[in-house]
Design a protein around this nucleic acid. Structure first.
Length: 898
RNA sequence: GGGCGCGUAGCUCAGCGGUAGAGCACUGUCUUGACAUGGCAGUGGCCACAGGUUCGAUCCCUGUCGCGCCCA
């Protein structure tokens, strides 16, 4: 006998290892079954599970478990990402607490007392950290129930994947798709590395707009006024731009100004970049520290003077007294000095967007450096074509438009990072800086020997690759590429990629580029995008806001199944965010309990599946109806999953299990199972109902398994199916039997009759304990037969005692109209006749309103002539039904008073 | 500034041309032999606003307002 409540903790802890040890998650590339593959978006190796993971991986696991049951050879490829900058940051922070720093150039200036680690020493620390915390997230994914094939777990820096990364880099370099270039990059002065455009987030900052007066060369009283949000960059100004048609400044074009504080002569140029409406209409140009200025500078051949070092401190290209100042200190000093010189015209408060590094959290500095770039524009061509012709589909479809928007305006991708943790770039430099890009140092040496004609010392490029460079290869590198493995042959292209909108560009776009280029095929056929999980108020969860909901706490409290069901129900939102209300998880837990207890009930009532039971042989209407509902639910769920409407599948399961099986089927069949119609040992009706109950539960547990794997596996076992068929996870998906429309009509009538009686009783405050007699007036032969069939159920569920036919309703009875018959429940001594009159009048009015509404429609000639025939017919039918019921209720009302 | 999405019950959200739905909350009632993590019955909506298309609009189109996200 099952316990009274479902205890997820114990069951989850037991079931997961059981599946894993039995090899239930394993892919079978050698099998003849059709492949179905999802590669996991690899979480940071040292990370821990947050709500985003919970959502993302639940959706994947639902699809995976469903396809596994559908008979596919399923591979859910797991693994983790080395997360270069994020991991390095965490380890650096840990080390700092021990007073240890990195031996990077210039670091000693900051932290003279620190012990400084070499690159090798630091990397050893990171590997240590990985060994220490690396299993956390995969353990947490297991707690969620994720049925990944862990025997195939990969890591972006493991041997095989590293080999793939190097090969890709070398091949792209040799194809001219990776090159070195000197241009402005987004420089993170805290992390001391270049970052890509995508890693920059702009934040609205309330600052100031300073209007500086720059004297015109050769004049003592003429100035040009430039407006700037970044006064400190004036140290690197090499020009001033004004709009060619701006009457205010037109006359100064071609002249020079003298840069205050520095004394440099700078040219005034005409450029449409300058907007006469903005600021003063004149813009100072600092080509080395602003992306727009860089372009302007290039157009007018202005020098780019780099005035910062990598810490964003003023360097030796600026006048002595500013050197070494942090950029913000420099700003203060410069503003103060300009004010002293009387060169500040005004200062306006100004809100503007400032670029911040998404990891370091400090403003990034446009910085002129040499970096490695991938030619994203060329690499984007094939992906764009594939998205256009449907080789890759997006769910929802607008993901495709977003994809195009990005891919069609794509900029060169800066792939080098000045970090230590990551894949070191396979480039070696000769004495004259000539670069040799090869897979190994030996090959580089060989190439150098050929080039120089003698052995020379080579120095390896110290930089590592952007983390997303290796992630971009994930769908094929994890399958064994560059080797021609059976896995690659069978599972690539993968079927679906499930991920959030937030990494569409970071990751999805880049996988498309690399997949198309190296495997000549899309990496996945469908991209299924979901929103960001936020708190109830729609706020992004963050530690600083203190609104983080920890999925593990929810699992502890309500069970993994409850969390999974909840996030799956949330997954529909077209909005970019999914607000998670913890109350919903509680609701899902209650849902699990409900199913648990329905099974407990079945067990108590001897529900068991006879060998070779064929549901098609069921004779009782209620059972035929139940089997039809099961078939309908099956189709609804199956279709919803196939169309990635996972929330619809969740709703259908809930409605079916709670609303149909528990609320109606179990209640309707209680008289059969618990009554004395047959002996307690059995009898044809009891046997059939026990069998159908068992059958329905068995199939239900299968339908629910992809979403709630733990409780269903447990119930499957408890119901005794495991012994015969093995674990539920490996069972075939149920086949929907044919529907029984006759039973539907009859049961629809029954449900309505019972519901209406209950409503009337409740409204008239008839005590639940009071059992009423029921007189049937005007019922036809079909009704009489139905009443006989379902007598026991009606009596039990509507609290009735005795059903008999009558020619008229007695005085002072509660009256219900269903179909052609009126049902009178004599209760004179218990009810208030006035209240019953009011109730009937309310019903009548409702129906009269409906009739009037339909009449208005049917009275409209345009409607009758233009609306489809079946719509018109439907309205006529509804009118006639409503009118008939209204008339019968009117008769009932009259009878009440007489 | 450009693009996209969202404004539906008190809250969180489905629905998206023809009877407005769910969960939670709320009200009443019931320890009915599975379940009070429950049963039964209810209350609660100018479907943001204004135009348009249509026989018919919560749904399609345009605009306005509010909120959010992405890209400059």
């Amino acid at each position: 006998m099952l316990d009274k409540t479902y205890d997820p903790k114990e069951i989850e802890a037991r079931r997961y290892p059981e599946w894993e040890q039995a090899g239930a998650f394993r892919a079978h590339p050698e099998s003849a079954k059709p492949p179905y593959c999802i590669v996991i978006p690899p979480p940071n190796v040292t990370g821990s599970l947050h709500m985003g993971h919970a959502l993302d991986n639940t959706l994947q696991d639902v699809l995976i478990r469903w396809r596994r049951m559908k008979g596919d050879d399923v591979l859910w490829q797991p693994g983790t990402d080395h997360a270069g900058i994020a991991t390095q940051m965490v380890v650096v922070r840990n080390l700092e607490q021990e007073g240890v720093g990195l031996a990077v150039e210039g670091a000693a200036r900051n932290d003279a007392n620190k012990k400084l680690l070499s690159r090798e020493e630091f990397l050893a620390k990171v590997w240590e950290w990985k060994a220490f915390s690396g299993g956390t997230i995969t353990g947490q994914l297991r707690r969620l129930g994720a049925s990944c094939d862990w025997s195939r777990e990969r890591f972006t820096m493991d041997e095989g994947l590293s080999r793939a990364v190097l090969k890709v880099f070398v091949d792209l370099y040799k194809a001219g798709l990776i090159y070195k270039d000197l241009r402005l990059v987004n420089w993170d002065p805290k992390m001391l590395t270049a970052i890509s455009d995508l890693e920059v987030e702009s934040r609205e900052v309330r600052g100031s707009l300073w209007y500086f007066k720059y004297p015109i060369e050769g004049s003592t009283d003429e100035f040009i006024v430039v407006a700037t949000t970044r006064p400190e960059t004036m140290l690197g100004d090499t020009g001033i731009a004004v709009h060619p048609d701006d009457p205010k400044w037109k006359h100064l074009i071609g002249k020079h100004a003298v840069l205050p504080l520095v004394g440099r002569k700078i040219r005034i140029v005409a450029d449409e970049y300058s907007d006469p409406e903005k600021g003063s209409g004149a813009v100072k140009i600092t080509p080395a520290h602003d992306f727009n200025d860089f372009e302007v500078g290039r157009r007018h051949d202005l020098e780019a003077i780099n005035i910062f070092d990598k810490f964003a401190r003023v360097n030796e290209n600026a006048p002595e007294k500013y050197r070494g100042l942090d950029r913000f200190d420099a700003r203060k000093k410069i503003v103060a000095e300009m004010e002293e010189l009387g060169l500040v015209e005004k200062i306006e408060p100004h809100t503007h967007a400032v670029p911040y590094g998404d990891r370091g959290g400090v403003p990034v500095e446009p910085y002129l450096t040499e970096q490695w770039y991938a030619d994203a524009k060329k690499l984007a061509q094939e992906p764009i074509a594939a998205a256009r012709d449907g080789r890759v589909k997006f769910v929802p479809e607008r993901g495709r438009d977003e994809f195009f928007r990005w891919m069609e305006n794509i900029q060169p991708w800066c792939v080098s990072r000045q970090l230590w943790w990551g894949h070191q770039i396979p480039a070696w430099y000769g004495p004259d800086k000539k670069v040799f890009v090869e897979l190994t140092e030996e090959e580089a040496k060989a190439a150098a020997l050929k080039h120089y004609g003698k052995e020379v010392a080579l120095e390896r490029d110290p930089d590592v690759l952007d983390t997303w460079f290796s992630s971009a290869l994930w769908p094929f590198s994890t399958l064994g590429w560059p080797d021609k493995t059976p896995e690659l042959a069978k599972y690539y292209p993968t079927n679906v990629l499930v991920t959030g909108w937030d990494i569409l560009f970071f990751w999805v776009a880049r996988m498309m580029m690399m997949g198309m280029h190296f495997v000549k095929e899309v990496p996945f056929r469908t991209v299924y995008l979901h929103g960001l999980v936020t708190d109830e108020k729609g706020q992004k969860m963050s530690k600083s806001k203190g609104n983080v909901i920890d999925p593990l706490e929810l699992i502890d409290k309500y069970g993994a199944d409850a969390l999974r069901f909840t996030v799956m129900s949330l997954a529909a939102s077209q909005a970019g965010r999914l607000r998670l209300a913890p109350a919903r998880v509680e609701g899902s837990r209650n849902f699990a309990t409900k199913l648990w207890n329905a099974t407990r009930y079945a067990e108590m009532n001897g529900a068991a599946l006879p060998k070779g039971f064929d549901p098609a042989t069921a004779k009782l209407t209620v059972n035929k109806w139940m089997l039809g509902e099961l078939a309908r639910a099956n189709t609804t769920i199956d279709t919803a999953l196939a169309e990635f409407r996972l929330n619809d599948a969740a709703t259908a399961l809930y409605e079916f299990i709670w609303g149909v099986v528990c609320d109606w089927y179990v209640e309707l069949t209680k008289p059969i199972l618990q009554g004395d119609a047959n002996s307690s040992e059995g009898g044809p009706e009891k046997d059939e109902t026990r069998a159908v109950t068992a059958y329905v539960l068995r199939e239900t547990v299968k339908l629910l398994h992809p979403v709630m794997p733990f409780i269903t596996e447990e119930l499957w076992d408890k119901l005794g199916h495991r012994a015969e068929h093995g674990a539920l996870i490996g069972q075939p998906w149920p086949v929907a039997p044919a529907l029984e429309p006759d039973a539907d009509a009859e049961m629809g009538w029954l449900v309505k009759l019972i519901s209406d009686i209950r409503s009337a009783r409740a409204e008239l405050n008839v005590p639940a304990a009071a059992k009423l007699r029921m007189l049937v007036v005007g019922g036809d032969g079909t009704t009489a037969k139905r009443l006989e069939t379902h007598r026991a159920a009606i009596e039990r569920l509507a609290r009735i005692e005795g059903i008999e036919a009558a020619s008229t309703a007695p005085k002072g009875a509660l009256q219900i109209v269903v179909g052609e018959a009126t049902y009178a429940l004599p209760v004179t001594d218990v009810i208030d006749l006035k209240a019953e009159g009011a109730r009937l009048q309310k019903e009548i009015k409702k129906l009269a309103d409906e009739v009037a509404k339909i009449d208005a429609k049917l009275g409209n000639a345009a409607f009758v002539s233009r609306a489809p025939e079946e719509v018109v017919e439907e309205q006529r039918e509804r009118r006639s039904q409503a009118e008939q019921t209204r008339e019968r209720l009117s008769t009932a009302l009259e009878r009440l008073g007489s």
